[in-house]
Amino acid sequence: MAWVVLIIAGVLETVWAVALESSKGFSRLVPSLVFVVALVLSMGGLAYAMRSIPLGTGYAVWVGIGAVGTALYGMAAMGDAVTTARIACLVLIVGGAVGLKVLH
């Protein structure tokens, strides 16, 4: 169960990162509220998962999911450049997170 919660928390990290950008420095109410709710749920999920997942593994997987999700969102919806090098770097992040899970 901790791994499921950790994955959801990582996805919520992507949500709060996107909402933070959309809030335009907290000048827009709805994205600012989405940011706060997603941040609290994401951190809460991380805290719950770390009850049974080691600190380094849990944090690295959480950050990896959030970083990859945010980068993919930027490429898909925000016009960020999609290059072979960027995709390769994201694959390396995913590989590292999977490796930490397997070695757990």
Rank of each mutant, 00 (worst) to 15 (best):
M1V: 09
M1N: 06
A2H: 15
A2I: 01
W3C: 05
V4R: 04
V4A: 14
V5T: 12
L6R: 05
I7P: 00
I7Q: 02
I8N: 06
A9E: 11
G10T: 03
V11A: 14
E13I: 03
T14F: 04
V15I: 14
V15S: 09
W16S: 04
W16P: 08
V18D: 04
A19F: 10
A19S: 13
L20H: 01
E21S: 13
E21Y: 07
S23I: 05
S23M: 03
K24I: 00
S27T: 15
S27C: 02
R28F: 05
L29F: 15
S32N: 11
L33P: 00
V34Y: 08
F35H: 09
V36T: 10
V37Y: 12
V37M: 10
A38T: 06
L39Q: 07
V40N: 01
V40S: 00
L41R: 00
S42K: 05
M43D: 02
M43Q: 13
M43W: 08
G44L: 10
G44N: 11
G45N: 09
G45M: 08
L46P: 07
L46D: 11
A47W: 13
Y48V: 13
A49V: 04
S52I: 03
G56E: 11
G56N: 12
G56V: 10
G56D: 11
T57E: 07
G58K: 03
V61G: 05
W62Y: 13
W62G: 06
W62S: 06
W62L: 05
G66N: 07
G66D: 08
G66R: 05
A67I: 14
A67L: 15
V68C: 08
G69Y: 01
G69L: 04
A71R: 12
A71I: 06
A71P: 00
Y73K: 00
Y73S: 02
G74T: 03
G74I: 02
M75W: 10
M75L: 07
A76F: 13
M78R: 15
D80I: 01
D80H: 14
A81K: 14
A81F: 07
V82C: 08
V82S: 08
T84H: 07
T84D: 00
A85V: 14
R86D: 01
I87E: 04
I87M: 13
A88N: 07
A88D: 05
C89M: 12
C89Q: 06
C89V: 09
L90H: 06
V91L: 12
V91Y: 00
L92W: 00
I93G: 02
I93Q: 01
V94F: 07
V94G: 04
G95Y: 03
G95P: 02
L100V: 03
K101Y: 11
K101S: 03
V102R: 05
L103C: 05
